[in-house]
Design a protein around this nucleic acid. Structure first.
Lengths: 334, 334
DNA sequence: TAAATTTACGTAAACGTTTTCTTTCTTTTT
DNA sequence: AAAAAGAAAGAAAACGTTTACGTAAATTTA
């Protein structure tokens, strides 16, 4: 025996399928006693509505597509968890795809999700390389970006104020007496990273100190990349008393490299990150960093998307959330 | 203008929709020239097949439901990432749900996914409390469990050999000279944890040392729980020279508590974990642990599920993968 | 009490595909 | 050249819902 359908229930109850549908949907066009009778029969028969058939006629799947650069990245996975829980509360499920930092793949999964008829897409874009492609794609379906400020695109996005965050971080180090601060991990292919390093430059200008930046030519900011960048840097004698990293993961890599080199943090070198991932809080070196409010990012993004699904012709909006300094023990006053 | 459908393409091409369908599906019942002509028209019109409609008639969604206890848990998120990538290569997408360690919620999302008509479900169960409920549910749909050995159920699962892994860990500590080894984090509500502590007991028996176990009454094994368990334990003087944790996250919590108490690892206390999550490898205390092969777990689980979807009447199978010792610097010889 | 309104339910179309069954036309066989 | 076989394409049903429309009975109104 196959799955029991609405038709089967109708046959048993001796009514038309419209009636069964109405009984379950809470329609007012049905008698209270027949409704109860039908619901009881549904339970007895173990009827579960077929979401696919419903989607077919309602032209709505109640599925949100989520495209992230990497699921296993503490910052993303935290946000995915928040998103999933909130989305479910709103009656939506999440279809998650990994773009693996690959613009081509990002484009591919986007189209795939469009074909799947998801009601909307939330994405953390690979970077500014994919802007043009995205501009075409987002015309097809309500889309909201997280994290990446699509500054030169009129798209919907929610993001933390990267520039202010990094500026505050720099000022904090300055307030501890640091005058020679190295910025590690600037990337050219991401607006987020551009804005972050801007915050650093702003602060340097304002404070009258000399900026000093190590760029990252990789497409991603991983522990591994942080380690390699720092390792190379530590090979020669260095002047700076503090390193400000573009991401917590990079900072964790720096900790590794410093440890191997016998450089003590914070005694010999102060270190800061950005993101505030769970695992940056671990002693003995627990990282001073800038917090991104992950729950608020997730909630704002979904709210924005749901609004847009309801009223697609509404103008594009953006939400910029405030970062906040999280002071732990990886920096010292000098 | 709405989305372009197969009918629109057919009208433009001047053929029936059956022909368009055949042109795109690679059916042999169509002339090579008409096929090319239709495909060209599809591209020009920007036609994307509607997966929902296809699912409707094919009775197959090409969606796999994934239920995990918590997405933001490095062990899980790593596995989810592997699963998503492999699933997509196999032509499937993932619908991810968080059970948040709640048996009632686990049951709820399971039914939800069944209503969604996903082709199969992969799940990391909350624990043995939910066995009975799951037994009913898994009759409805092909299901594969990861991690949890459903020993007393005839279900499909893939798991690491927890007992052997913990036994090897204990023997490793013994080989370093430890005779007083504390096991921290045993849980009663999970077969996995039962099997792990069994491995510890086995080794103790075999080696002739006295077992010593701190239980964890929480439903989960988080950093926080490890921290609290260890903190309480460290308040009184202790005898053991090594702590073996039921999970890496617990061990990270122990590191925190030890750090606050001034207990040095590994100088004053050796420490081991289980799982080998990315963030356990960080210096200065990089954790010696037992590796769970996450990629292999993911691939085996999906292969098993796909097999079962193809042949639902096949007998239940299980796959037990081998754990392996990962030696870092959190243990010392005494 | 007849007319008007409301209530409760049935009928049937629609959603966008796939696929079985025909049908037509072309090619091969004898 | 007629018959048989094969290739290419069309017609229509099916998948399981929702909902606009229609209609009969029940209720209200005049």
């Amino acid at each position: 025996m196959g799955v029991v359908t609405l038709k089967d229930v109708a046959k048993v109850a001796g009514v038309s399928y419209a009636t069964v549908s109405r009984a379950l949907s809470g329609s007012p066009e049905i008698g209270e006693n027949t409704r109860k009778r039908i619901i009881k029969i549904c339970e007895e028969m173990g009827y579960t509505p077929n979401s696919v058939a419903r989607s077919m006629v309602m032209k709505r799947t109640n599925i949100i597509g989520l495209i992230v650069t990497s699921i296993d990245n503490p910052f993303m996975s935290e946000m995915i968890a928040h998103l999933e829980i909130y989305a479910r509360q709103c009656g939506y499920n999440l279809m998650v795809c990994n773009s693996s930092y690959d613009p081509a793949l990002e484009k591919e999964v986007f189209s795939l999700l469009v074909g799947r008829k998801v009601d909307g897409i939330i994405m953390i874009p690979v970077g500014s390389e994919s802007y043009d492609a995205l501009k075409m794609l987002t015309a097809q379906i309500p889309t909201v970006f997280i994290g990446e400020n699509m500054m030169d695109l009129p798209e919907n996005y929610v993001s933390v104020d990267n520039t202010t965050g990094m500026q505050q971080a720099t000022e904090y180090l300055y307030s501890l007496g640091h005058r020679n601060i190295l910025y590690l991990g600037a990337r050219d292919n991401s607006m987020t990273h551009k804005l972050r390093v801007d915050g650093y430059y702003n602060a340097c200008n304002k404070l009258g100190i000399e900026p000093n930046v190590i760029r990252n030519s990789n497409p991603r900011s991983s522990i591994q990349v942080g380690y390699e960048l720092a390792k190379t840097h530590f090979e020669k004698p260095f002047e700076e008393t503090a390193i400000l990293c573009a991401a917590d993961t990079l900072a964790i890599g720096v900790i590794q490299a410093a440890y191997e080199k016998g450089i003590r943090i914070p005694e010999d070198l102060s270190l800061m990150g950005f993101d505030n991932i769970t695992f940056s809080a671990l002693p003995p070196i627990s990282l001073t960093t800038v917090n991104q409010p992950k729950l608020e990012l997730a909630v704002s993004a979904l709210d924005m998307l749901l609004n847009r699904i309801k009223r697609p012709e509404t103008p594009h909006t953006k939400t910029i959330l405030s970062p906040s300094l999280v002071i732990r023990n990886s920096c010292r006053a000098i």
